[in-house]
């Protein structure tokens, strides 16, 4: 229903645009507002060179790309690279790691800021709220190199975590070298870094809720908990749904920086993800076509998930489009 109206609007806008275009008013427009065209020119050139040309360059996934022949002379091989991938042991492992870590992030990292925002909302003393919030926002601004360094230092054999373990009478553990801990460390460090930042949008949405709703609920005898469950949370749902969709589109893109800075050769078997693998096999070893095929595969999965979940979201709430 909503989508239908939207479609009509888009059609109308399109018609308007082409009508004006056809009336040759485009040239008039350029003449009259040539400064606007001049202003946007550098931006357009930037987007073409660094966004669209690489996007078009993805076609090397269907080639046997050779750097000296270039894009136009390299032979086309159809789906050969993708077929190769399916039988490729490394790819299975990397894909499994990526999907698992992505799933853990979705389950733990996505809801964390929602819960934190609800807890923030229960703090009544403004100065306490502000102070606590500023502490929570800080890690967002640190680079993953720094956070990775912090994690390695704190979890090292002489680090504070092992110091505490020793005090409690446990054996020290080399956390960063053990496969069993890697994904947990990825999730915890991710939550630590981004949980505070993630609350901002939810807090803004909570502020926008009409206070009279709460007043009415109080008169009906709802306590704070019930107000949260029956008013705040339902009214946050559209925000949650939009952020979920934005997230799901990048489902398999875990962020190169984080994994790259936490990974050691000892943990490759559980932590090597698409992006780190593509970097090593593609950028360092020059298997351009194969790794582009992996990248393209990743994008297609992301877009498919976005499309599916957007359809689902449109049925109940609102989608992205």
């Amino acid at each position: 229903m909503d989508g239908h109206i939207k479609n009509e609007q888009v059609m109308a806008e399109k018609n308007g645009f082409w009508d004006r275009f056809n009336q040759n008013s485009f040239i008039k427009n350029v003449r009259k507002h040539w400064m606007l065209y001049l202003m946007i020119l550098p931006g357009i050139i930037y987007y073409i060179i660094f966004k669209y040309i690489p996007l078009m360059g993805s076609v090397i996934a269907f080639q046997d790309f050779q750097i000296f022949k270039g894009l136009f002379a390299s032979p086309w091989v159809g789906l050969e690279n993708f077929k190769h991938l399916l039988h490729y042991q490394d790819f299975h492992e990397v894909l499994r790691n990526t999907a698992l870590i992505a799933l853990y992030q979705l389950v733990f990292q996505f809801p964390a800021p929602i819960i934190l925002a609800l807890l923030f909302n229960e703090i009544r003393i403004l100065i306490v709220k502000k102070t606590v919030q500023s502490l929570f926002y800080l890690p967002h601004f640190l680079s993953w190199v720094v956070v990775g360094g912090i994690v390695f230092e704190l979890l090292a054999s002489q680090g504070i975590v092992n110091a505490i373990r020793e005090m409690l009478g446990f054996e020290p553990i080399l956390f960063m070298q053990e496969e069993a801990y890697f994904r947990t460390i990825v999730v915890i460090s991710g939550v630590w870094k981004e949980i505070g930042w993630g609350t901002i949008i939810y807090l803004a949405a909570i502020t926008a809720i009409n206070p009279s709703l709460y007043e009415a609920a109080v008169i009906d005898g709802a306590n704070r908990f019930k107000q949260t469950i029956y008013i705040t949370l339902p009214l946050l749902l559209p925000t949650i749904s939009v952020l979920f969709l934005l997230n799901i589109g990048n489902f398999l893109e875990l962020g190169f920086d984080q994994i790259f800075n936490l990974l050691t050769p000892m943990t490759y078997s559980v932590g090597d993800i698409i992006e780190t693998y593509v970097y090593r096999a593609g950028v360092l070893q020059g298997q351009y076509s194969l790794t582009t095929a992996i990248g393209l595969f990743q994008s297609v999965i992301g877009f498919a998930l976005l499309w599916i979940f957007n359809r689902l979201a449109r049925k109940s709430e609102q989608g992205l489009w």
Partner: peptide, 22 residues
């Protein structure tokens, strides 16, 4: 159209290797 072209790059970003090669 230009706005659309630019916002689309937020959804479709190029894989690492073609970006690197470019």
């Amino acid at each position: 159209p230009i706005m659309l072209m630019m916002v689309l790059t937020m959804i479709f970003n190029a894989p690492m290797i073609p970006f690197f090669l470019t």
